[in-house]
């Protein structure tokens, strides 16, 4: 069957199935199981109202449970097992973790991930704040915002191609077609550099790609927060003789610190999962490995599900504090 037809059928089936499920299950509850008539009318209506929320929730809960909650548990289990030749699994305790801890590539990935965690959220938030403040009061601010926000729509793979062109290096003596090398030569650099193959610094060239993408996100949210600052506080500061920088750092930033934290943690999550950029640009060569790519290597190249699951658990562990913090905040707000 042609995939397009299959796609259309899936849409029809999925949408029709959903609508049909919700419609008929409601009908069933209201008319057949707990009909709102007869001698038990009050009891029936009450019972129908107890059941109904779960009818509405059932498909979502099923999908969430199967596709997100169960895998967490299953990955934990797999990380403690090992495939035995001939099929099946055996429990091996922490052996996978021990094996992983003995690999240089793992520590390199962990170290790089921490470097990413230090640089990318900070740089994106800082640039986002700068962009938000700069574009806030100028006449062409909305166009500027749109253009800085645009990389958000570009895939990590597309961004990888875009930036590989920026970092491109040609043999010495010939004309450079990568912007970075052209500028480097223009300002008196001697030989063109293959930027992505210089250990340690190449990680920063990869990070630039993610900063470029995430700055727009930070800018949009921080710009909304800046606009929410009460005008009086700024006016009072001006009356008291505060300069523009004092107003920004002493008056505005403290008032939006909550939003800055939200932006920071959101980008942190993105950084922890970063995969496509490294996979497409260096594939972890030249000491640029990160956890998500290390895990992919283990899973689909080395075909080692035990160690792969163990490294996935490491990512989960790093995400955990943010997860707990988010849930805590959400619960506090609902009270």
């Amino acid at each position: 069957m042609h995939p397009a037809i299959q796609g259309l059928m899936t849409i029809a089936f999925g949408v029709g199935g959903c609508v049909g499920y919700f419609y008929f299950s409601n009908l069933l509850v209201d008319k057949v199981i707990f009909p709102a008539k007869g001698e038990h009318i009050a009891r029936n209506i009450r019972r129908a109202n107890i059941v109904r929320p779960w009818l509405f929730l059932a498909p979502a809960l099923l999908a969430l449970g199967l596709y997100l909650a169960y895998p967490v548990v299953e990955t934990l289990r797999l990380s403690l097992t090992q495939r035995v030749p001939g099929g099946g699994y055996e429990y091996v305790g922490l052996d996978n973790y021990r094996q992983m801890a003995g690999e240089g590539k793992f520590w390199e990935a962990l170290q790089n991930n921490f470097l990413w965690l230090l640089v990318v959220p900070a740089a994106s938030t800082a640039f986002g704040l700068l962009a938000a403040q700069l574009t806030d009061r100028i006449s062409w601010g909305n166009i500027a915002k749109s253009l800085i926000f645009m990389p958000m729509a570009i895939s990590f793979v597309g961004a990888a191609v875009i930036w590989k062109l920026v970092y491109d290096a040609r043999p010495p003596g010939t004309e450079q077609i990568g912007v970075l090398n052209a500028i480097y030569i223009f300002f008196g650099g001697d030989d063109p550099q293959a930027w992505l193959t210089i250990p340690f610094w190449n990680s920063f060239f990869l990070m630039a790609v993610l900063v470029w993408i995430q700055t727009g996100f930070a800018m949009v949210i921080l710009s909304a927060a800046l606009r929410g600052i009460p005008e009086e506080t700024v006016e009072a500061a001006i009356v008291d003789g505060a300069g523009p920088f004092q107003i920004f750092f002493r008056i505005k930033v403290p008032q939006i610190i909550g939003t800055i934290v939200v932006v920071w943690t959101t980008i942190t999550i993105v950084v922890l999962k970063v995969f496509d950029i490294v996979f497409a640009m260096t594939n972890g060569q030249w000491e640029t490995q990160v956890l998500a790519n290390y895990m992919f290597d283990k899973l689909f190249r080395a075909n080692d599900w035990g160690v792969g699951s163990a490294s996935a658990m490491v990512i989960m562990l790093l995400v955990m504090p943010i997860l707990v913090w988010n849930v805590y905040n959400a619960r506090r707000e609902m009270r």
Binding site: L64, Y67, L68, A69, Y70, P71, V72, E74, T75, L78, I269, L272, K273, F275, A292, M295, L299, W305, G308, S309, A312, M313, I315, M316, V319, I322, L323, N326, V327, A330, R331
Partner: peptide, 17 residues
């Protein structure tokens, strides 16, 4: 609360299972 928690679960965990 559970849904807020699931928001940030890395999908890397879901691949093998």
């Amino acid at each position: 609360a559970a849904i807020v928690g699931l928001l940030v679960v890395p999908l890397q965990l879901a691949l093998i299972p």
